[in-house]
């Protein structure tokens, strides 16, 4: 992390995203998927976002990328509000935030080659060159022989690398990683996590790292936010949240982390293993 005054690359302010559904008797109910979420991501830092399924993480992510429209609240990227911009400007700013998907098995088009998958964002932006694609794949540890292969010929970990390469194609400042290692074998997870760490240093990236595996979050994050039912119930530095959690929900989450030494289980929330 830089010592110089950190610039805010992604700021979310009191975001509200609601859905209306029909209940079983026809009554309309409003579901507040994101209920007043605010946070600021600084350059070079990793903000871990944890929460159980259904807490609103996915909706938050989709809203950041314009797939859902907020009822109120704002999203600022590099200090610019996306809402009021011309479409060209908005596209340029939006591209500075990229997404890495959770499921390596459905995030890549099975009919395309690795080359085409990584080339696509470049082609859309008019910046395609074969050399760029090759170097992007090289950056994530995949050699030139990977270019012509299709997703089915790669392992889960390798597919996730392709997804990361695709996300880096447009030189973003922020990567939102939506449970990027949840679908991978434990042995492979470490490799991908380390790759992410290296890339962050190399390209001065900021990460919004969403996960439910707390040990992984602890390893990568500088700060941690805990989400429950659409709200952020706790935000703080990693040590603060893990060692001295304030909110009862955070405490119950941490209590569920398996502790290897049975003698230490009784004191669980206070001391955790570094992974």
């Amino acid at each position: 992390m830089n010592d110089s005054p950190a610039e805010t690359v992604l700021a979310v302010d009191d975001l509200q995203v609601h859905f209306s559904t029909r209940g079983s008797r026809g009554a309309r109910r409003t579901i507040r998927a994101v209920d007043g979420v605010s946070f600021a991501l600084r350059r070079g830092e990793t903000l871990g976002l944890v929460g159980e399924s259904g807490c609103g993480k996915s909706t938050l992510v989709r809203t950041i990328f314009g797939l859902n429209t907020p009822v109120s609240g704002s999203i600022e990227v590099l200090g610019h509000r996306l809402a009021g911009l011309s479409s060209r400007r908005r596209r340029a700013i939006q591209n500075r935030v990229q997404l890495v998907f959770q499921d390596p098995y459905s995030s890549l088009n099975p009919r395309l080659t690795a080359h085409d998958i990584v080339a696509e964002p470049l082609r859309i932006a008019g910046r395609y060159s074969r050399g760029t694609v090759a170097s992007l794949l090289d950056d994530v540890g995949l050699g030139a022989d990977a270019l012509a292969k299709r997703p089915a010929q790669f392992s889960g970990g390798q597919r996730q690398r392709i997804g990361i390469a695709r996300a880096l194609a447009l030189h973003p400042d922020v990567l939102v990683l939506d449970e990027p290692v949840s679908a991978l074998d434990v042995s492979v997870q470490a490799q991908v996590i380390n790759l992410l760490k290296d890339l962050q240093e190399k390209h001065s990236l900021s990460y919004l790292f969403i996960a439910h595996d707390l040990s992984v979050v602890r390893y990568l994050s500088d700060r941690v936010a805990v989400m429950q039912k659409g709200k952020l119930v706790e935000v703080g530095s990693k040590d603060q949240v893990f060692d001295a959690p304030e909110h009862p929900y955070t405490r119950s989450l941490l209590a569920s982390i398996p502790v290897a030494d049975p003698r230490r289980r009784a004191d669980a929330p206070t001391q955790l293993q570094e992974s």
Binding site: N95, L99, F101, D103, S106, S107, A125
Partner: peptide, 13 residues
Amino acid sequence: ERDFVLAPRIQGA
């Protein structure tokens, strides 16, 4: 709604 269709949309397609 498949991820590989969302990806290009997010990237400006």
